[in-house]
Write a protein that binds this DNA or RNA. Sequence first.
DNA 1: AATCGTCAACTAACATGTTAGTATTCGGAA
DNA 2: TTCCGAATACTAACATGTTAGTTGACGATT
Lengths: 231, 231
Amino acid sequence: MNPVTLTDIEDLSGSLAQRVYQSLREAVLSMEYPPGTILRKGAICEQLGVSRSPVSEAIARLSAEGLVDVIPQSATRVSCFSMDEIREASFLREALELAAVAKVAEQRSDEQLTQLTRNLRLQELLVEDRDFAGFYKTDEEFHALLMEFTGFPGASSVASNVSLQLKRARMLLLPEEGRPAEAVKEHKAIVDAIRQSDPVAAQAAMKLHLGRLITQLEPLESQHPTFFRSR
Amino acid sequence: MNPVTLTDIEDLSGSLAQRVYQSLREAVLSMEYPPGTILRKGAICEQLGVSRSPVSEAIARLSAEGLVDVIPQSATRVSCFSMDEIREASFLREALELAAVAKVAEQRSDEQLTQLTRNLRLQELLVEDRDFAGFYKTDEEFHALLMEFTGFPGASSVASNVSLQLKRARMLLLPEEGRPAEAVKEHKAIVDAIRQSDPVAAQAAMKLHLGRLITQLEPLESQHPTFFRSR
DNA sequence: AATCGTCAACTAACATGTTAGTATTCGGAA
DNA sequence: TTCCGAATACTAACATGTTAGTTGACGATT
């Protein structure tokens, strides 16, 4: 009865376990598997045409990231949101992005500034075209670029790991009228501060920007109570 | 020929895989398995009296954390240090701890302040007794307390994960004469700022303190070239 | 009708068998 | 002696068999 909602692992690269992991992770983050969904190893094996070994490894990694809860000897289900966790993720993300943006403002190269500006222009275009999916993607690229420009290649992945729950919760947010345009303005303020090599201003602009997201997220708990756990 | 250097998994709790993971992780972090050591699944299975499944899962987790490098179809070895990675870890740790200490300074309870003060006194005692192992442990507890007091239970584990390489590299540092005493003073400055609810001063004190560690770590690359990879 | 205990079905966890890719060694040719 | 290549031994990766713990349903008892 359930349609095949997993991206085919044939399209991915790496070990089997790696591909299964990516496929499952994508399904969880995109809310194709909404919180509470029970993951059946057997079904996944059948669906992807692999044995349980790579599936187990994939699930173990998802569990370590907090995307699924595995109930010993019983079942494993897609983890529910908790507003506490979302606030925590927001706090950690802010800590990392503030440090990054300050460092970038201090040491940016012209080439890096150009890349940020180019990304910014793309954002404007996509908002004009009302291509919100494209905008989301470019938005995330913007933040990833900033982390990369710190000169620490792993910083980007740490930040995105820490923000996983935010990314997933954000999927519940319908693009609110006018919000993407505002986000672009805030991004612009950040880039302006970086252009002027002003770390303090860059941090302030980033803080403002990130604060908007958590504000948008807060009402979700009452709007989608089934996706949240009380605790 | 090799003596049994793994802590017995009997002493640990949780699933087999979890226990194996803890045992291996401890061995890597304590430098009992120095960088470059080749991990043989077969030997580990024999030594711990378990099958390859839990060992594989444990190694997969260590690999995800960057503590071991697994060479596909060939071998898995304890990862070498790289000064770039250590600088990166230091940057990320600083970002998190600065955010944490500011938040704690703003919202601390008296009970929390008491706990910090108590930890501080313990540090003084241990340094007086020249119990450096005990001091290291209490030092880490100090930083863990600060992360906990943010009110975000996961923040502590994120911070310690990010600092794994720092923790391991620190093992190479012989307790330098007078350094622990200085560290206690720096900790005291941090707690003083928290006592006065002064986030800015707390951040400054923390930044100074964390800066000392990376300064101590820098010379290691030339002192222990075999433990570092060039790249 | 409600509750409790038993049992059957299902799942993760663990053990073990199999495959395929890598590295090393050893022998032969230059 | 040196260099190259084939064969072998070893490893992680994958598949599959087995165990044990949990859940839910069903029936007996009150």
